[in-house]
Amino acid sequence: MSSSDFPPVRARGRGAGWYRGDCHVHSVHSDGELAPEELASRARLAGLDFIATTEHNSAAAPGVWAQLAADDFLIVLGEEVTTRTGHWLALGIGPGQVVDWNHRVGDGLIDRCLDQVHRVGGLCVAAHPHAPFPSGDFMFPFRGFDVVEVWNGLWASDRPWNADNEVALAEWDRSLAADVRTGTWRPAMGNSDTHLEGQIGVPHTVVLAEELSTRAVLDGIRSGRSWIAESAQVHVSFTLGVGGRVVGVGEQFATRGGRVEARAAVTGVPSAAVSFHTDRGKVHHVSLPGDGAGVAQWHTTAEESAFVRVEVRRPDGHVAALTNPITLT
């Protein structure tokens, strides 16, 4: 088994910019119904720039994925570590690497497994924390994990949002209120958990990366320079700024004691509501016009808000997009 049996860790891409990707995908090599070729083709049609292979408790099969990568399409190696007390994603692991799945909360093995991923520069994601099936509830503490998958598309019916995602989002939001002030907050991400036709990219994570490479994409996710979209038709630009100084999602803004403007420009979500959230909960909302294009603005200070994040919801209350926070000092 050589490195040529696996996809390259870097694609040519477009240089520094925003890249769309789905990091929770299953093929016929675990319990999915689609071949890798079909997954890659459908991912590209869905407007994605990268996917991660996350078969259950096994490495990506050698000789399968390498020919599916391209200059404009990155394939990240990963695994869904399916334990008895919760599932988690090991992203950016090495070719042929398998992370031990035979552990559970309370047996003292989780830290060793997380370290196995971190040693190779990988990312550990708490997956679908409230999934409605045996072992789906995530019972491990979030300590040691890098990211939380607050939006998982597998179990939704007509749209990729359901009550389990709502609970996961609320749980993550509560943790932000405590963790942002200590600098230990964990970013959110969204993935389709594709098993069937029509699921890939619904939802996915939009990442600001220096280049289209495994390292750069994972760095962007790890730092929270990302937001989650229902589809490639949804676009969100979220910034904080004042007097020509502007920062984006995942960054920190030094207010210098003054008021700053939170600004969210949204397209692709007709008649939606854009809401701003802080450690005080939802603080402001704006309704978009019927064509789904609009700008929402709100002002705050560091004394009022430790962070600001944005949600975009459809008229039925389902989330169409949500961002990681911008923190304030």
Rank of each mutant, 00 (worst) to 15 (best):
R186C: 14
F276M: 09
D49C: 07
L208T: 14
A70V: 01
R186P: 14
G292R: 11
R256M: 10
Q297R: 15
H87L: 08
N57R: 13
R119D: 15
V319Y: 06
T278K: 03
F253V: 09
I326M: 08
E33N: 15
A59G: 14
G317A: 09
V9L: 12
S287M: 15
R84A: 11
P36Q: 06
R309H: 00
H285Y: 06
H118E: 01
L45V: 11
G106L: 12
L74I: 05
L218S: 00
G241A: 01
A156D: 02
I326A: 06
R181C: 13
V147H: 09
G201C: 09
T184I: 02
V117E: 11
I51Y: 03
G183Q: 02
P129L: 13
H118S: 02
G21H: 10
T53D: 09
R245N: 12
S3Q: 09
A40P: 02
A306S: 13
S58T: 10
G78K: 06
S231Q: 05
W155Q: 12
G86L: 03
A262F: 11
A66W: 03
E303S: 07
V28A: 14
H29P: 12
L240K: 06
E197G: 04
L208D: 12
T278Y: 01
V319N: 05
R10L: 08
W65N: 01
A306P: 02
L123A: 04
T83R: 03
A52Y: 01
T255F: 09
G17T: 00
V202Q: 15
S223C: 15
Q252G: 11
A70F: 02
A170C: 10
V202T: 13
N165A: 04
D158I: 14
P160I: 08
V312Q: 03
P95A: 10
R159Y: 08
G250A: 11
E55A: 10
L169K: 06
E37V: 14
V266K: 05
R14C: 07
V308G: 13
V25D: 00
D100E: 06
A69Y: 05
R159L: 08
G122E: 11
D71H: 07
W155Y: 14
G281S: 04
P129T: 06
P289A: 09
L322M: 12
V98W: 03
F50G: 00
R181V: 15
V283N: 02
E149Q: 10
R20I: 00
A273H: 15
S226E: 00
I93T: 02
H29A: 14
V286E: 06
G13F: 00
S27F: 03
V274Q: 11
G121W: 12
T184N: 13
P95M: 10
R181W: 04
L288Q: 08
K282Q: 10
A320S: 14
V98D: 11
V310W: 00
R10H: 09
L123C: 06
H118L: 00
G220W: 00
A177P: 01
S237D: 15
G248F: 14
P134Y: 07
V64Y: 08
G15F: 02
V319A: 14
G86A: 04
E211D: 14
E80M: 01
A302S: 13
Q252E: 15
F276D: 03
A66T: 09
A178R: 15
A90Y: 03
L154D: 04
T182M: 07
V206Q: 09
